[in-house]
Structure formats: C-alpha cells, structure tokens
Design a protein around this nucleic acid. Structure first.
Lengths: 153, 153
DNA sequence: GTTACTGCAAACTTTTTGCACGACA
DNA sequence: TGTCGTGCAAAAAGTTTGCAGTAAC
C-alpha cells in the first residue's frame, strides 16, 4: 500500500490505455482489478486481489480475476513473480528492479538500487542462451519475522 | 544429467548420512528419491522425479515423493526453486549459485560465477530485513528455444 | 447490433492429509 | 517390538475451460 498516489494513477492510466489500444474492452471488472494490482507493492496473489476487489465489485468472480491478470501479463503490463512456492503473485512494477524475499513468511519487497542494476551476466552465460534481464534476489528474514521471533522467546 | 558421477555420489552420501543423523529411516523409497534428485541438474518437479523413480521402484507413490522432498527440504538438504510458475521444482545443489531461467520454456540451469558471487546486498536492504544470501537470476531465452524459433520461421 | 467479457459450474492440476498396513532400527 | 514411513484414497488448494447470458464499443 506504500505506492505513492501519483504512481498508482500513472499505472492505472498506462494499464487502461494499453488495454484499449490492444482492442480490449475496459470493463468495470478489469478496471478494478487494474486499480487493485496498481496500488499494491506487496506482490499479491490472485486470491488476495479477488478479495480486495470484491469489496467494491461484490459480484466479480475469481476466474475473471485470473483471466484479467493473465491478459495483463500477456501484454507485459504486469509481471508474474515466482519467488516463493505457492500461489502465483503479481507485480505492477514493470520497471527493472530487484527483490527482497523473506524465506520465513514469503514477504516480497521491491529493491531499487543502482549497484544491483549494474550487475551484468557473465560471458559464460551465453552458452545457455541470450540473457534479457538480470534480477537479484536478496533472500533473508524480514524485520517482522525477526520481531516475532524475539517476542516469542 | 550432466552432474559428474563423483558429485552424484557425494550428494547421495551427504543426503543419506544426514537423514540417518536426523533419526530418520533410510528407506528404499527415500534412497531412490535422493538418488534421482542428486543426479539431476535440471531442477525437476515432483512429477518428473516420481516418473523416474518409478522405473526402479514401480510401487512407489506420488505422495511419498512429495513427503520425501518436503523432508529433505526441511533439513536444508535440497532446495525448492521458485523461478517459474507451475509445479515446485527441486535443486540438490545446495552450494551458493545462480540461475539462468528461460522465460519461454521454463528451463533452469545453474550458473557458477565468481563475479556474481561477489554481488553484495545494498545497505538500504537492511531496513527490510537481514539478508542471508544474494542470488542472481539471469532471465532470457535458452538456445533450444532460439533454435526452435529459427526452425519454425 | 456485434462481439468480447463475465459469471457460473465443472474439470483439471498440484499438493496435502488421514488411516491402516508394512518395514526399518 | 515399537514406531516411523508407505500406499491408498480422499480432500484441499490453485488454476483453467466451456457455455450461455450480459455489457462494452
């Protein structure tokens, strides 16, 4: 929820425009799914988005949320984040960035850092394929899990 | 399958020993699952391991494979790899390393590189939690997918 | 007015669980 | 021999799909 209002607006705008320009209809349901995914920086899964959207569109169905997110991902407007086992999670931040992943609770936060952006694929990787992006995952224990551990001891 | 025989032996040995030392029984089924995961560097999913093991232990059940891998992962002897959507995949290489991920077919290969090992978490990450490891994902298109594309055009 | 989208329901895939029998230490 | 692990079956969790009605353009 820490995404600045201006950035949320920009994302909703970009997403809405791109849907229209792809000849797709901007339905009430799609708009609300777009709003929800744009406003979150917690890399929510489909169920979480579904529950949030249902507050405003009580009749929306889970499979519409699945379909909308698949559509958006297909257009490259949101990204599937595969950093933890379990349900697929989505990220509306399509700029190049990195992630902190809590191995205990599954929390994922974006990490923006010039130093990490500068990491380049080694030459040896060329034998595997063409590298299109380099993403760094910082794996560890988040502050919340540390706090819980201290409190429970 | 490109894991050197010596390394496979070492892995099977470490895994077997660790199971015993944890007071767990080294059953026929567990041993074969261990062998299978140790011999692969393709980050197989449970179903794949199941099919391979069933060649040698036709009566083994899928849920035993699930349970064995969960046990091994719990002991830190194998790692869940969450780099692609779909079924969870396992990696018997517990040394610090990086991955090349094909965004088209889901292929995952290990990448060993000193330069990538040297990447450090930025100071800013401390506000998110304690970073225990830094893993680099090289995302792109593998040589096989490139070849297929050329052949189909 | 078309055509694409939605909601419902059902199917499918992946993973987990309860229980009784069998096998390891 | 006692206990842990296995296989079977069923359930739970996550995701996809077909179809008929509805709404966007």
């Amino acid at each position: 929820m820490a995404v600045p209002a201006r950035e949320v607006r920009r994302r909703v705008d970009v997403l809405s425009r791109a849907l229209r320009e792809s000849g797709l209809r901007l339905t009430h349901q799609r708009l609300e799914v777009v709003r929800e995914v744009a406003r979150s920086d917690e890399h929510p899964d489909v169920e979480t988005i579904y529950r949030a959207v249902r507050e405003r569109v009580p009749t929306i169905s889970l499979d519409t949320v699945y379909r909308t997110l698949a559509t958006l991902a297909g257009l490259g407007l949101v990204r599937r984040v595969a950093a933890t086992p379990g349900p697929t999670r989505y990220d509306a931040n399509t700029a190049h960035h990195h992630h902190f992943v809590c191995t205990r609770c599954g929390l994922i936060r974006d990490v923006d850092d010039r130093g990490l952006d500068a990491v380049r694929a080694p030459r040896s990787a060329a034998s595997l394929g063409s590298v299109e992006s380099v993403e760094v995952q910082l794996r560890g224990i988040c502050v919340d899990c540390h706090k819980k551990e201290r409190d429970h001891d």
